[in-house]
Design a protein around this nucleic acid. Structure first.
Lengths: 229, 229
DNA sequence: CGTGTTATTGAAGTGTATCAAATTGCGTGG
DNA sequence: CCACGCAATTTGATACACTTCAATAACACG
């Protein structure tokens, strides 16, 4: 009876039952992968604002976000925190440092309640060797991250704070609509200060682009207005 | 006689004779790869400031820099040019867009006389399928690029112009010493204007960190002084 | 030797960070 | 469910680093 329930639990948390098995970057490669993962993965639950790994840690494997939302952030010597990327359910984190033999250059913390699976490095490498498609998936993810990073940097240079804040709220709402983003979080994503975000949002509201009467929630009224400045 | 000389030329330009065959990201995977590449590659020579591919073009394959120096730059709507990366001999370009089915988000132009090999997409994919090591190499390169891009963005935010210019001249000299960088090139790398670069360099000279009496060449006198501001 | 590019210097304007203080809102525990 | 306390938000004033524009000087190149 006891053994049966244990088996049952294992069944329930099996990768074969996971809602993301057909979409996740590595799980979707082949059903044969799932069995390998099942034997090796470690599933953990996190509350909001808990840290999965720290900037400077040695990478031990790959993480996939099963539920929730994870923020990758870099903290500079001056203590300034910058949000590098947000990673939602079905996507992976920590793959960047797997291949460079360097320490993580970002920290990963949860934004909301999250479930994260850990896959040890040797298992990941084994999968790459057996399934070339897995490599393509990772290369695609890395390429997309790189594109985002490059464009974020060039945008930074050309665009002023209002433009960056406009893009930030559009991006954050489009990708993670359910979140009620704080002004600080928007600032760390847009590369500015909370005060500047607030002043900018007030300006947007005056222009009729947004509405922020209900709590901290931002309702977008005029997308093209925002995009054009 | 005629045929012999053709064969000879082919021999000379063979990947098996290339000085980078043991170091290049893809050529070094296996000697078997070299034969595949030899049959497919297209070798081109470029003068300074010629363009290899343009931002917005469709990616057709992979390029490796055999000799010279290539700049990846992104030009924004406002016409501002930003240098995303410099790529020296032995390294590859254009791999980022191979996996995303998107157009190039940067342009690649030569800085000096350069020789560049082009490898068609289907050949690259074939190599990835046959040699898993090739994928690891690309993943490593993508990871390193991503790390550089991420850190460049966060640095941008925290550091002021003097710090960025200091890092720029150190980086550019360390990696591509033979180049006599123009103030504009330094500015596009550091994310500022030529005027600000000039004023900053004058300040550095006054502080005894550098010497710029001989032409446009910058001689670094005090590395740690530069790094600490 | 001229012509276009790069470098330099100056003056002026401004966007944005910073600091400080007041207010609101929210979560937590009583 | 209310009250408390802390965090998030808001507003204002100030300062300044940096860009921008303009004009000149030095240089490289054909």
């Amino acid at each position: 009876m006891k053994a049966a329930s244990v088996i049952n639990l294992k069944e329930l948390s099996s990768c074969h039952k996971c809602g993301h098995k057909d979409h996740n970057i590595i799980c979707s490669v082949s059903s044969d992968v799932l069995s390998l993962l099942d034997a090796a993965k470690i599933k953990s639950t996190y509350k909001p604002h808990q840290t999965i790994f720290y900037q400077g840690n040695d990478p031990l494997g790959l993480y996939t976000v099963s539920e929730g939302l994870v923020k990758l952030e870099s903290v500079s010597e001056s203590g300034q925190a910058h949000t590098v990327r947000y990673v939602g359910a079905g996507h992976a984190i920590g793959y960047q440092s797997l291949f460079t033999n360097e320490k993580y250059n970002v920290s990963a913390t949860t934004v909301e309640n999250s479930i994260v699976c850990f896959i040890p490095k040797n298992v990941v490498m084994d999968i790459f060797n057996k399934f070339p498609m897995a490599s393509f998936q990772i290369m695609k993810a890395l390429s997309e991250d790189l594109k985002l990073a490059d464009s974020k940097w060039t945008d930074q240079m050309d665009k002023d704070v209002p433009q960056r804040v406009a893009e930030a709220i559009l991006y954050l709402q489009d990708h993670f609509a359910h979140q009620n983003w704080t002004r600080k979080e928007i600032a760390e994503w847009a590369g500015t200060t909370p005060e500047s975000v607030i002043r900018t949002l007030a300006q947007f509201e005056k222009s009729g682009f947004i509405d922020q009467t209900e709590g901290r929630n931002i309702k977008i009224l005029n997308r093209s207005g925002l995009m054009n400045k």
